[in-house]
Design a binder for these strands. Structure first.
Length: 271
DNA sequence: ATTTTCAAT
């Protein structure tokens, strides 16, 4: 918190359309603007929006996702879901959520029991390992996460900017979408290293305190389970389930944010 | 590394 951030809420806009300019400034895979825009809708079983709008981050105070989740919680608090109904939240975000936001999303979903689709325009600081891992965990916990395709941009534009204007993609958008899709797919397929090998690091503490990684009460951590998910166990391994968890793993290089040493994310089958 | 990434000397 800083004293200069006056609490005038210029970050949340309910049932208001975006200008075309705002859309293109933010949903832009070329410029990495230093703000985030999240468009959201909450729909019922029928394709009828109960609540919709968009939010920017509150600079230095809160990320955009947090602001959106709070608004959704507020709405759901006074409009509880009917028994036979199922709310669905759709988000179009200009950046992928960071670890903290992933955790808040998870807490929100545990409480509200809604379905969530998360469409992202570009990756936020993917050199920070935590941002990758938390996306992986969030997906594992049931959030449908994807990078925006051209069709998604069109849909987002149609829904949040103008239903009649024609969406004009910026240059190279199609190629960028494809690349994002590949990057995300790579992330889904990446094998993640067991947490017990991780050396002292502020990130480890952050993860250990994170509900995102501990809330299903399993003694093993999310990392091991994710790893097992991504590969088909060999026949002889099935007889000895414990052998699936590798004991010796390659050392992990931790990234100092300043030094920028890339940490190792994946490894080949440990034999 | 694809690095000016949810800003701010």
């Amino acid at each position: 918190m800083n004293i200069f951030s006056v609490s005038l809420d210029m970050t949340m806009f309910i049932k208001k359309l975006l200008s075309e300019e705002e859309f293109h400034d933010n949903f832009n895979t070329v410029d990495f603007v230093k703000k985030t825009l999240v468009c959201f809708s909450l729909e019922d079983k029928k394709p009828l929006w109960r609540l919709w709008g968009y939010a920017y981050n509150n600079p230095g105070v809160e990320h955009a996702e947090i602001i959106v989740l709070r608004e959704l919680s507020k709405f759901l608090g006074s409009n509880p879901m009917k028994k036979d109904s199922q709310y669905k939240v759709t988000l179009y975000a200009t950046y992928s959520p960071c670890l903290n936001c992933c955790e808040e999303i998870w807490k929100f979903l545990q409480k509200e029991k809604v379905i969530m689709n998360l469409n992202i325009s570009k990756f936020y600081n993917f050199y920070d390992y935590d941002n990758k891992i938390s996306l992986k965990v969030l997906r594992k916990k049931g959030v449908e996460i994807k990078t925006m395709t051209l069709e998604d941009y069109k849909a987002c534009f149609y829904l949040f900017v103008h239903p009649k204007e024609i969406f004009q993609p910026c240059e190279e958008l199609d190629a960028q979408c494809e690349r994002n899709e590949i990057d995300l797919d790579d992330l889904w397929n990446e094998v993640v290293i067991c947490m017990c090998e991780i050396e002292d690091d502020i990130f480890r503490r952050k993860r250990q305190n994170s509900e995102l990684f501990t809330s299903d009460g399993d003694e093993n951590n999310a990392f091991i389970r994710l790893q097992n998910d991504t590969k088909t166990p060999k026949k002889d391994e099935q007889k000895e389930p414990q052998a699936k968890i590798p004991v010796k793993l390659p050392p992990i290089k931790y990234m100092d944010r300043k030094e920028g040493v890339k940490r190792k994310l994946s490894f080949d089958e440990p034999n």
